[in-house]
Design a protein around this nucleic acid. Structure first.
Length: 565
RNA sequence: UGGCCGGUAGUUCAACUGGCAGAACGUCGGACUUUGGCUCCGGAUGUUGCAGGUUCGAGUCCUGCCCGGCCAGCCA
């Protein structure tokens, strides 16, 4: 698995890169390549957006071109600077730097309006007095043509006057629209006299109350691309049908440069989660998650809090490639990239999530030994640390079984294991409570095994982690599971919430962690040995979020047994 | 109901544009190992949606059908 940037040399080009390369070679745009990432500032970016971000920035970079961040702020409702800021932050976090300051569709409102008057002048646009319901009802459907609006044949002068009155604020919201005059019988519904301007007496977060008419997406997007000099306008598959309209508008205007071309690719879907804004909002509104940065969410803010490194997200996006097939990616694949990154970079630490007390009867009373442990076996330069070892330890409850089944290699009565960075430990006796529950293990250690090996050559099957009870720090650890139990929530038209997993977050409040963990920085991801990768919370030094577990062969064995029975 | 876009391993993508169907992740097995992790080695998995046709030869071209997605916002 290759981390770094997209499309290693060994990999064939995807259909978009192939197109860009062909254009570049043919000198189509004088060899220039320019893309853009055009979010609407009305929400937060999620993993699906990350795919578009990577594609746009990297395609441009591969050709020495430019990629701008453009806010598609054509609809004042719901848009806000705070979203624009958050989006810019998330892009920077992902590791991309847009060319120049962010631009806005609203920067072009005046130009767009001028072009609209031009189209009116050409007899290619008209003001329609019909209300939304009527416009919708007369559009026809897939098998019947639409009906021409009675306003369709207004004179240029009349249309110009009405359009200026619209802009001047002389009409109420919804009372009139400007429509392109194309073809009410067109097989592409989008071409049946699409709306270019609608009236909204609503303040805009950038233009304030300067405008009361706002361009629609279709009327703004291609022209914004053209104004900026975008060459390849990449968007998701659902805009496929819009391309015809995109081209129509641009063909009927005098553009400052070459006509940009739109190409569509499949949006990214992940199993066991949702990415549509509507569905994410529902989760938040119904308090099924804690907010837009809940670590269970596929939002970039959520993933960041969870401990997903931007490098892994980029490597994942590069790996999945771009095509026109609508599919669903297994979230396990994303997780494997997260593991690959952290395996190389995360420091190893010991933490016991569900503590079980071990008393070492032959340990010298009151003695504390500082054991040296490697910080990262994958990276010698990460060095070593000291871990205090004493006669009273916490070990993981899962690492002991009274009556171990076959293939359980860990501790059991009479068995010996190795303590990581410590000694061999043998369990001699088990103290149980009134209900028969295990409360304490009486053990002995072998003082000759400090090297990790026994001089007599005897082997142990397992090495387990531990924390000195006298030195352990208390911590809370949030364990996250799948947000939805169904691989594709909401498949077959069901309500996605039906498969919402109420057990998707388990908070452990009495974990015991080694002293070195006090030094973990905000947001730092470490490996709890044998357990997984955990991100220290950005604020709370005693809270850790499980980013992703390690591959767990023992868990797989148990799962298989369960499936067989 | 019409138009458009798709359909290749469990999943996501390849297949030099008509020439022996592959890779990654997952899975299974083995080696190694002071993490049941990592790393390394190996195995299995396909009626290329279906049926015809053209061709010496079809995943690729043609015809018909099936399945999935998108489109009837004054959302993007």
């Amino acid at each position: 698995m290759n981390e770094g940037s997209a499309g290693g040399a060994s990999r064939p080009l995807d259909f978009i890169r192939e197109q860009v390369q062909a254009d570049s070679a043919a000198g189509t745009f004088a060899g220039r390549v320019q893309t853009r990432f055009p979010p609407e500032p009305n929400g937060f970016l999620h993993i699906g957006h990350a795919k578009a971000v990577c594609l746009n920035f990297e395609v441009a970079a591969e050709h020495g071109g430019t990629c701008r961040l453009r806010f598609d702020d054509t609809n004042p409702e719901g848009e806000d600077v705070s979203y624009a800021q958050a989006i810019a932050e998330d892009i920077a976090w992902l590791g991309y730097e847009p060319d120049g300051p962010a631009v806005h569709a609203s920067d072009y409102f005046e130009q767009l309006y001028g072009w609209a008057e031009h189209l009116v002048g050409e007899g290619l646009a008209y003001v329609d007095d019909q209300d939304a319901e009527t416009v919708s009802a007369t559009r026809g459907d897939f098998s019947t043509p639409g009906i021409d609006s009675p306003c369709r044949d207004r004179s240029v002068e009349q249309n110009l006057g009405l359009l200026r009155d619209m802009r001047a604020g002389r009409f109420d919201d919804g009372s009139r629209v400007l429509r392109a005059k194309i073809d009410m019988a067109h097989p592409n519904m989008l071409m049946r006299d699409p709306v270019m301007y609608r009236i909204r007496h609503t303040g805009h977060f950038r233009t304030g109350d300067a405008w009361c008419i706002y361009p629609t997406y279709d009327w703004a997007h291609g022209q914004s691309d053209a104004i900026e000099g975008v060459t390849h306008s990449l968007c998701s598959l659902e805009f496929d049908a819009h391309r015809q309209l995109y081209d129509w508008y641009l063909e009927h205007l005098r553009l400052p440069g070459d006509r940009p071309r739109q190409y569509e690719f499949a949006r990214l879907n992940l199993t066991h989660t949702v990415t549509s804004k509507r569905r994410l909002s529902t989760l938040i509104d119904e308090e099924l998650v804690d907010g837009w940065d809940d670590p269970r969410l596929p939002t970039l803010r959520g993933l960041r809090r969870r401990g997903y490194p931007p490098e892994a997200i980029r490597a994942f996006c590069a790996h999945i490639g771009v095509a026109r097939v609508n599919g669903v990616h297994e979230i396990e694949l994303l997780e494997s990239f997260v593991r690959t990154h952290h395996n190389r970079h995360a420091l190893r630490r010991m933490a016991v999530l569900r503590p079980l007390e071990v008393v070492i009867d032959n340990w010298p009373q009151g003695r504390v030994e500082h054991r040296r442990a490697v910080n990262n076996p994958e990276d010698p330069s990460a060095g070593e640390r000291e871990v205090p070892f004493t006669g009273r330890l916490w070990i993981e409850r899962d690492d002991f079984m009274l009556d171990p089944p076959r293939k359980f290699y860990r501790l059991a009565p009479g068995r010996e294991v190795r303590l990581r960075a410590g000694y061999f430990l043998r369990c001699n006796d088990v103290e149980t409570g009134s209900a028969g529950e295990v409360v304490r293990l009486r053990c002995t250690y072998d003082p000759d095994t400090g090297s990790g090996q026994a001089p007599d050559g005897r082997k142990v099957r397992a090495t387990i982690h531990w924390v000195s009870a006298d030195h352990a720090a208390d911590a809370r650890v949030a364990l996250y599971g799948r947000l939805f139990t169904d691989p594709v929530p909401g498949a077959d038209g069901r309500d996605p919430l039906e498969s919402y997993n109420p057990a998707s977050c388990e908070l452990i409040t009495d974990a015991k962690v080694e002293p070195a963990l006090a030094g973990a920085g905000p947001g730092e991801v470490v490996q709890f040995e044998r357990l997984g990768y955990f991100a220290r919370d950005a604020e709370d030094a005693t809270l850790f979020h499980r980013t992703v577990g390690l591959r767990d062969e023992w868990a797989n064995i148990q799962k298989r047994r369960q499936q067989r029975s």
